[in-house]
């Protein structure tokens, strides 16, 4: 590969990768707990998933097949550059097919296709601390986590119901992992929250700017916070995808012309393409 001589496999040097792997091991040992790590400068700006990239670089092997999703799509600039980055620095195979990938780095979505125990899902996380907006003091949020003192988040949800009649948060909806730590699932739609629980794949979360790694080990219970009389639920618009007809996947609304034309299509482009291909076969 021209232009990558002098770089180590997957860009990061082995010592850095070992350091990150130690953080990952600790994160797996304490599900949902935010482990600090010495985040490195990456050749990408923050907000482009530098935390996810460092985690991916540390778990990637030469035999892996990488998929990168940005808001459900494989073809955005962000997804394409990260995929290209690892194709060049690690020489790994890449794919857009969820079922074929062994490592999937994602921003803002969980794939519709159920994951397996042979896969690792790496989330890009902008703000790892779910209590950040409620308690700006870092020492205090740490104490709240240490003591499992999460009443303040419940107050936040109470406020939603009092003012809006229901819990309004539609993404980055806080969860409790393994009956212990409160965790931000990253800005995925709450539609995806149920997929986090009892998932066969290892789920890793990397926040570059905030220097935190956390994890949900395979088959860990993950509960979305709620009230007994206002249980967590996901509201699907009920409209089928205009392209593949799926009535159960998460949809994006897209503008089709400049006359106010709109349609709803699957946010997960791989899932949608699969279904369209299948329909083509059947026809």
């Amino acid at each position: 590969m021209s232009g990558t001589e002098g770089y180590n496999f997957a860009y990061l040097d082995e010592q850095t990768k070992r350091m990150i792997r130690r953080a990952i091991l600790k994160a797996v040992a304490v599900p949902g707990y935010q482990v600090p790590f010495a985040s490195r400068e990456m050749p990408l700006p923050y907000g482009w998933g530098t935390g996810g990239i460092q985690v991916t670089a540390s778990v990637l092997g030469a035999d892996d097949t990488l998929k990168v999703i940005d808001q459900g799509a494989d073809d955005t600039t962000n997804a394409v550059s990260i995929r290209r980055f690892f194709a060049r620095t690690a020489g790994v195979a890449t794919t857009t097919r969820t079922a074929e990938a062994t490592v999937i780095q994602t921003r803002h979505r969980v794939p519709e296709t159920p994951l397996t125990g042979d896969q690792i899902l790496v989330y890009q996380v902008p703000i790892p601390e779910p209590l950040r907006w409620l308690e700006p003091r870092e020492a205090e949020t740490r104490a709240l986590h240490a003591l499992g003192d999460y009443g303040v988040m419940q107050v936040e949800l109470y406020e939603d119901i009092a003012i809006h009649g229901k819990i309004k948060r539609s993404y980055d909806y806080p969860v409790e992992v393994a009956d212990r730590y409160m965790m931000s699932p990253s800005p995925i739609p709450k539609f995806d929250n149920p997929k986090l629980s009892d998932c066969p794949a290892l789920q890793l979360f990397g926040a570059g700017r905030e220097k935190r790694i956390y994890a949900i080990p395979p088959h860990t219970p993950v509960r979305s916070l709620d009230f007994e009389d206002h249980p967590f639920d996901i509201d699907h618009p009920g409209t089928p995808c205009a392209l593949c007809g799926d009535t159960e996947s998460f949809l994006d609304e897209i503008v089709t012309d400049d006359k106010g034309g709109r349609m709803f299509v699957c946010s997960d482009t791989d899932h949608c393409a699969e279904r369209q291909a299948e329909a083509g076969h059947d026809a």
Partner: peptide
């Protein structure tokens, strides 16, 4: 709520 109440 801090003491565990979860019924709105």
């Amino acid at each position: 709520m801090a003491d565990g109440a979860r019924h709105y």
